[in-house]
């Protein structure tokens, strides 16, 4: 909508009382040409985003198996999402994943960015590349690799045995207590490099005079980090937070490839529950309700983050 209004609104604002007929026509033509240019993307956007969104919203109010006639159930699907113990537990799992996918990598990223920007070493680009690498790998590949690492005879257990910690070995992804944190750490590993590179790039644009001034005032490394680096990186932190939190909310591939939500329902996420409802146990209404709820949550989180980060500056 906004896209459609904006060109018109902009033109209204331009002063054109003395313009003759021809320029106006030209202007109108330009406007239509502009519209013609956006028409195709707009149509595509409407067909692949807006229409499915409207449909999902509609489906979410029905009890529907995807084929036969649907029955209207009002908000039942949404109520079920928040009252069914198994479905509700997926929200708790997501909260754990947000810690591992978003908070932990951002803290680690900030610390490493602070360390790296303080003392510039040779070969920095190589380290940055190595830490960024997980971000480049396909998530399915990452999941398969970690499935091996976490396996009963996997690298992690072998390592633990080698250093005499054989008592701590377990099937990490098959253990009710450890499966979710184990999955979470995979997320930490993949997003940490991304956060770090983002923060290093941001830190390099902080004027060095600020650091010099801080040092002149006798600020130690911690003070310097809190007073100069962190405020300077507010925008980057907001971006990192938005991206990682929303990716934690929609975690699917990692879980699907490794545990399928098990053991029991210990690693079930809303996205996996959605997939099951949509494609395995035909309950399209419930799947749509989960999807809409997750979309709204993503939107709210993104809005809150951007509000908070803008207000502070």
């Amino acid at each position: 909508m906004t896209m459609g209004i904006r060109p018109g609104a902009g033109v209204t604002g331009t002063p054109a009382p003395r313009a003759g007929r021809r320029p106006a026509t030209r202007r109108r033509r330009v406007r239509w040409i502009g519209l013609a240019f956006v028409a195709l993307p707009l149509a595509v956007y409407a067909v692949v985003v807006l229409l499915p969104l409207a449909q999902s919203l509609q489906y979410s109010f029905y009890d529907w198996d995807g084929v036969s006639a649907a029955t209207w159930v009002g908000l039942d699907n949404y109520i079920e999402f928040f009252t069914d113990p198994v479905l509700r537990s997926t929200l708790g799992h997501v909260a754990v994943l947000i810690f591992f996918f978003a908070l932990l990598p951002i803290v680690l990223g900030l610390v490493s960015a602070a360390l790296i920007t303080r003392g510039r070493q040779r070969g920095m680009a190589v380290y940055r590349f190595i830490f960024f690498l997980p971000q480049v790998l396909t998530s399915v590949v990452v999941a398969l690799v970690f499935k091996r690492i976490y396996g009963p005879e996997g690298t992690l257990n072998t390592l633990l045995r080698a250093v005499g910690l054989g008592d701590f070995t377990r099937s990490w992804l098959g253990d009710f207590d450890w499966a979710l944190p184990s999955l979470g750490l995979i997320g930490t590993w993949t997003t940490f490099g991304f956060c770090m590179v983002l923060f290093i790039a941001g830190a390099s644009s902080i004027p060095t005079e600020l650091y010099e001034a801080a040092r002149m005032d006798g600020a130690g490394p911690l003070r310097e980090f809190l007073s100069v680096t962190l405020p300077g990186l507010r925008g980057q932190v907001a971006i990192a937070l938005t991206l990682t939190v929303t990716s934690a909310l929609r975690t699917f591939d990692l879980v699907w490839v490794t545990t399928r939500g098990g053991p029991g329902t210990a690693t079930l996420t809303p996205a996996v529950a959605l997939y099951r409802a949509a494609f395995q146990n035909p309950d399209v209404g419930r799947a749509a309700a989960i999807g809409i709820t997750m979309a709204v949550m993503c939107l709210v989180i993104a809005l809150v983050i951007s509000r908070v980060s803008e207000r502070d500056s």
């Binding site: 807006l50 409207a54 509609q58 489906y59 029905y62 529907w64 995807g66 036969s68 006639a69 399209v284």
Partner: peptide, 10 residues
């Protein structure tokens, strides 16, 4: 678009 989607699915 919403009119299209308005009839009960399936």
């Amino acid at each position: 678009a919403s009119a299209l989607a308005a009839c009960a699915p399936g």
